[in-house]
Design a protein around this nucleic acid. Structure first.
Lengths: 242, 242
DNA sequence: CTTATAGCTTGATATATATCAAAATTAACA
DNA sequence: TGTTAATTTTGATATATATCAAGCTATAAG
């Protein structure tokens, strides 16, 4: 299942990366950018199913996703699992590890993926010299906090179909930002993984998808998803029982 | 309900603060510590029910709680509310605001409370000069991420009684760290607020408390809580249906 | 190409929690 | 200190989601 992780690595180049606006929207001079390039290494391909880092691993770096798709999940003592997020190109993962110098979740590739490794203490060093870079790091950390708190809202107060609508609209919007169709995309994760993320059982996810399809809001066939009515989904997201 | 916030403010002194080990466990020289003191202002008392900051407020500072107790909550468009945390002395709040320069939640005092205001851009400035301070800020941000992800686990995979046991043990542990009894304390929040935090209705919270009491794990009378068996609660926390 | 496995859907039923309601208790306030 | 409002508890019932089960489909492996 988990293919070995190749060891080859090459110099990354944020300066010429087409994801820069997503990943690192910071204005730096050429010289400053070169220093950043210097610090970042492009890692080889992580095959589908392989693990970028595991809970308990020593924390040393953040990872910017160049291509592909990941999930992060925590497991507690009694084997309970919670998918804490799905990450795509231009997003940065690994920030959970800073607080205790060890990762607290697993990051697993859901398709063949490439990442850039950003050694954290060197990033901190550079941040001290380049205030815009420092500020950007702080924003990224805070954005993760805000994201997580919105998932708490979802888990704490939404019903199954609303959770799913919220999830699909979130994916849609993130694909759109990356220049892909906001209304037609492939789900990279299983119903079980969606369920874990949304606090639902896979059967409930399946039923909710079927129901959204009956309502003509989406078309879903296996992993292919088409959103037929964005505003309808939005309305569904905000629906309350009373 | 919401008392006006007093405007008087005085110089804070981390250097002599008895919460320093909790709030700022960083080794700095006297001179460095003085520079930090210089940046932090001690705000007047926030009365019970008053608001430290509101969602939408411009983000300018983090706040270290000196005394008292706060809740943070987000409200979405359709009036749904989610309590995202309860914070006590020595903890730092406001980090949600960094990402967009505006707060994304409300912070409300659940009892008369005092805070130290830490202007964020000045903290960043000082962080560039004092690496241990910078590192500490990063740890705090990351710790918040880890905390939130553990709540996601709770909300996504635990049943009512487990959620409550987890919550009570978390409070217990935080009181213990502060030198208070881990087994006997006052709840500062209503059943409704506990329910909002745990993704449950207040009636369910009340029933779960009653049931833990019947099981001789706790004694609860209104807001007074006594834990009779820490290990029993721990066992209850890890209980799964199957 | 065939077979095995993992993933998905749908139905029937069980169950945990929500909802509704009323009474009891506590806290706030005038 | 009396009065009102808020909070809490508990019961009866409703409902959303989980569970169990079976068949189906797609994907991976031999």
């Amino acid at each position: 299942m988990h293919k070995p992780v190749p060891n080859n690595s090459l110099k990354a180049a944020c300066s010429t990366c087409n994801l820069r606006k997503l990943c690192l929207p910071v204005s730096l001079s050429n010289i400053e950018m070169a220093r950043l390039d210097d610090l970042i290494t492009r890692k080889g391909v992580y095959r589908h199913g392989s693990i970028l880092y595991r809970s308990g691993d020593k924390f040393q770096a953040l990872y910017a996703i160049r291509t592909g798709f990941f999930k992060t999940q925590i497991l507690n003592e009694d084997g309970r699992e919670q998918v804490t997020g799905f990450q795509m190109a231009g997003e940065i993962i690994g920030m959970d590890g800073i607080s205790s110098d060890a990762h607290t979740c697993d990051a697993v590739a859901l398709e063949d993926s490439e990442v850039c490794e950003i050694p954290f203490s060197r990033l901190e060093d550079l941040g001290r010299e380049l205030p815009p870079l420092q500020r950007h790091l702080h924003r990224i950390l805070s954005r993760e906090i805000v994201r997580d708190q919105n998932i708490m809202l979802l888990l704490g107060s939404m019903r199954a179909e609303e959770r799913l609508a919220t999830f699909l609209l979130n994916l849609s919007q993130r694909f759109a930002v990356r220049g892909y169709s906001p209304t037609s995309f492939q789900l990279r994760m299983t119903r079980h993984e969606i369920g874990s993320y949304l606090g639902l059982k896979l059967e409930t996810v399946s039923r909710a998808l079927s129901h959204l399809q009956e309502s003509k809001l989406i078309n879903v066939r296996n992993r292919s998803l088409e959103i037929l009515c964005l505003s309808g989904l939005q309305a569904c997201m905000g629906k309350r029982t009373r």
